[in-house]
Nucleic acid binder design. Structure first.
Lengths: 182, 182
DNA sequence: CGGCTTACTGAGTACTTACTAGGTACAAGG
DNA sequence: CCTTGTACCTAGTAAGTACTCAGTAAGCCG
């Protein structure tokens, strides 16, 4: 009774498909934000249908969670504790190599300022953790920790908007000199 | 032939209605971003129908333009030229009093990083102008100007996300002390 | 080969999206 | 009073929204 059932698309193991989904979704959120994201576009980008996509993530919010979890996992490494200045230097250098991911977080970060955004709590605790560990590295100076975070975020946005004008690494090194002087 | 034509809603002069539209739209963009904004919600918020709304702004993009233009107009004042440090101090103090507008700009700023966002060019030239005039006030030190802008933006986002934790004015004054020292 | 799990599809639901066409009623100017 | 401009309406269109249901086939284990 049904149609011939096109089976021309690849059938991937769940883990692999999930990885692909996260990648595609990240790109699209960086472009349109979470509210502007459509399941259809994600499905198209993965070469499957919307219900096929939903089979893996359950819902649109599940999609967002998948992205954030994945990103956290690959971020936890590299936070080995040197001193604050060298840590920031290496963070900035890594970020300079992956503008798309930085943009994903910049967009989601701002969008999730609204208290009922599905990622609101995620970003709040994320920032608190960041500031806590930065504060520790700064010898208890929380104000400095907050300033460092603010400066990194701000410079990254300038860089993303106008990649030609601003070299992120140089801009940060300049800023660090001022922040960490004395 | 047509229905009784409900005329229970207020009929406002164009200028007044426009002002209301801008206000409602600002609130909604701060919440959902431009991609997440719906004409229906704006119309509801103004107490009129969607075509009634479209009569004033023409299209969804026209709506965004109206918001940005209005905001520019009310921002141009107050930029009287003292020195950089006192200018920033007063900017921060004004922003601390209008978190909703700051949030509108934070969200739209990040969302418009994508090159084909309707407000992309607007925010690019806006930032360039800001940096140019800050640079002048900083005696030609563009790096400092960029750092000041970055720091203000970054601290504002921290404040918006967690208003309880961070007092914006105090956070800025601390930061200014470090930035403008020497 | 047989049976089970599961990745995935087609079809459909109920709703929302931006936007248009064409008309109505209010207000101001002659 | 009558005309003209305009603020705003109803009705409709074509497309897109997230999501559900029931079924199909590919891969694995025995």
């Amino acid at each position: 009774m049904s149609q011939p059932f096109r089976r021309d698309r690849a059938r991937l193991p769940a883990a692999e498909r999930r990885k692909q989904i996260v990648e595609v979704t990240s790109r699209l959120i960086a472009e349109y934000g979470f509210w502007g994201l459509s399941m259809q576009d994600v499905a198209d980008g993965c070469g499957l249908t919307v219900p096929g996509l939903l089979h893996h993530v359950g819902s649109k919010e599940g999609l967002l969670i998948a992205v954030l979890e994945e990103r956290d996992r690959s971020d936890m490494t590299e936070m080995t504790g040197q001193d604050l200045k060298t840590l920031c230097a290496s963070l900035v250098r890594r970020n300079a190599r992956q503008p798309e991911i930085v943009r994903l977080f910049a967009v989601l970060d701002a969008e999730s300022l609204a208290p009922d955004h599905p990622a609101h709590d995620y970003f709040r605790t994320r920032e608190r953790r960041a500031i806590a560990s930065f504060t520790e590295l700064a010898g208890g100076d929380e104000a400095l920790a907050r300033q460092v975070v603010a400066m990194m975020d701000g410079l990254q946005i300038q860089w993303l908007r106008d990649p030609a004008e601003a070299d992120l690494v140089k801009a940060w090194d300049d800023a660090a000199e001022r922040l960490f002087s004395e």
